[in-house]
Design a protein around this nucleic acid. Sequence first.
DNA 1: ACCTTATGACAACGCCGTTGACGCATCGGC
DNA 2: GCCGATGCGTCAACGGCGTTGTCATAAGGT
Lengths: 235, 235
Amino acid sequence: MSERVVADGERRRRRPTKRGTVLSEALIVETALRLIGEHGAAALTVRRLGTALGADPSALYRYFQDTDDLLLAVADELIGRTLRAWRPSGEWRADLRSLGLRIHADYQAHPQAAVLTCTRVTGRVHEMRSVETILGILRGAGFPDAEAVRIYHVFVDQTLAFAALDATVLTLPKESRILEERTWRERYARLGADTHPHVAATAPTLVAEMGRSAYPAALEMMLAAAEARLRHVRA
Amino acid sequence: MSERVVADGERRRRRPTKRGTVLSEALIVETALRLIGEHGAAALTVRRLGTALGADPSALYRYFQDTDDLLLAVADELIGRTLRAWRPSGEWRADLRSLGLRIHADYQAHPQAAVLTCTRVTGRVHEMRSVETILGILRGAGFPDAEAVRIYHVFVDQTLAFAALDATVLTLPKESRILEERTWRERYARLGADTHPHVAATAPTLVAEMGRSAYPAALEMMLAAAEARLRHVRA
DNA sequence: ACCTTATGACAACGCCGTTGACGCATCGGC
DNA sequence: GCCGATGCGTCAACGGCGTTGTCATAAGGT
């Protein structure tokens, strides 16, 4: 009984589909990312991906064990792209800021993959290099080892956690998101000052604030606390 | 054409199902939580929930518009349980700290449900009371409205985001978690000081740190930044 | 040019959420 | 204690999903 899926490198024959496209692991992952980008996260189904490729959906199972396997490949590609495009400036706060915002933004662009990836330890080369990079930034800034490790942990998990949280919202069906926004606008804005005085007093600000991600603000607070800590350590 | 779903309080007739159970919004939510806890988040489907209740799946649509509506009810019930047990101390930092840690801990106790629900805005009673409570803590501490709203947003999203992230790890099957951790240790141990000097220099601390949640540290950094901000505003 | 076999196509299975029609049991009014 | 209205549980069906077993066919090594 031969395995259904073979490694991409060991593939022996490239037989075009009925509609002429020649499949490959890379092409499938690429098309999956395009589908997500163009038609939203919900558009990524095996059947639709097959159609977009001009192939029978079941053909994909020659390249990936199942949907989960496919999504992991997509996620890995995403990590690679993100890291490849980042350039350090040499100033630790600016570097952490740009790295965090970039990861967050890139994951938001592909919510489906982000939600799946963020909580998973890949242990791959890119991940190891990112650990080394961030630790280097912190130790280079003068944080003692214990402090650097702690701040690294907070930085990474906070970035991934917010990325997953914000991406999940984007994963929801469109109606849910519209409903959610209306909930804030109508329900919270109309709470009476007698029962909910604090909400009533801040309603307009609250509605505006909840419409966007809290990650940038959270990142700034975290960087501010880190800098205060660094000053304290140096003194 | 009468509405399919009526509010739970206005329900006029209680007709038992074929198998004898008398449905109600509360019973359905409760059963949903039990299903999630016993068999994982994936076990929560309308059809399985119907079977668990001893009712036809379509009967649930007399109580909830759709699956999304049901999930919101489950989420709100979780918030309610958490908030009900919390007691304020009157000191804003201590209150935010205990509230954050409690939410984080309670959601970890129901990882499956947490992952599923903690990204949703329910707009239901329990959630609205929690918004009011936290905003009250911040405004009472002396934060101006805009600042209070911003910090509320960071606090809530950070807590939920970490809860979801940490809960997801608990959701994984035990074997793969152990395997994953071992893989990490071995990979880190093998990294040479020549290619990954920072990782090599901090390896023991790193392994110890990554074994626990970063939420408490993240919360402390966030509170420290908030207090600095408050001092700045007051001056 | 042949033979093997990798690979794409097809059909089917069993899930899923959701809906419209239907009929029975329950409740208010007498 | 009956009766009519109707709330609500049930049934059947639709279209979509992931996945798999089987088949035929074209690609490659020889």
